[in-house]
Design a protein around this nucleic acid. Structure first.
Lengths: 106, 106
DNA sequence: TGGCGATTTGGCTAAAATGCCAAGTGTTTC
DNA sequence: GAAACACTTGGCATTTTAGCCAAATCGCCA
């Protein structure tokens, strides 16, 4: 793998890595229903607000979400709705695995 | 976030995490063109064979790839081709980011 | 059977990711 | 202008990854 190829996959990996966390996935699915402010997400997640803020920063850094300030609040939203397709594929992997285990149990 | 919801997103995150690495993404893209044995992937990646083997094990554990033994070789292949849709979405995130930066540079 | 090539697994160290608390920055309100 | 919010950032301890070497397996063939 040459340097250029490596750089290409590192860029891609950064984006996927930014989604590879349960809390961040949960946030993405919430944002798919519309923008939300940090405090609302914090309530839903049930973690420290600083933790949620950092999760959002991770996703913002790679361009998955964008933010908008309104007064003292910050609203986050998805920047690329296609992110949701990830979910469908992931579900399909889970289903395939489940089906296989069912078959083995017969 | 209740326990059930948390478990659901942890399961999803495990799958995405298994892809969140440059080398593993490279391997996935190679496998999208057909099954390959560990030694061939090792040559392409250019790392220690034990490293490549472990990367493959990570993806196999979550059901992204499957393996097939033939003599002393082990061939790996994608189990869910939809994985490739991840790439398209990731590219779209990258394009959006690039376009935005271009606009800012004007 | 002994050796060789192909893989996996164990072990270990270095690097990266998490999550909470505390502290700092803006905003709004009284 | 002080107190109360809404966030972000710094710091730090803990856990999780990564990747190489060495050792153990497994199949093949002379």
């Amino acid at each position: 793998m040459d340097d250029k190829t490596r750089a290409k996959y590192e860029l891609r990996a950064r984006i996927i890595k930014a989604m590879a966390h349960p809390t961040r996935l949960f946030i993405v699915s919430q944002l798919s229903q519309g923008e939300k402010c940090v405090c609302e997400l914090t309530r839903m997640v049930g973690a420290d607000i600083s933790t949620v803020s950092k999760h959002l920063a991770v996703m913002k850094n790679v361009g998955i979400v964008q933010d908008r300030k309104e007064g003292s609040q910050v609203f986050y939203s998805l920047r690329c709705p296609c992110i949701l397709e990830f979910f469908e594929c992931v579900e399909s992997v889970l289903r395939t695995t489940a089906a296989e285990q069912l078959a083995l149990a017969e």
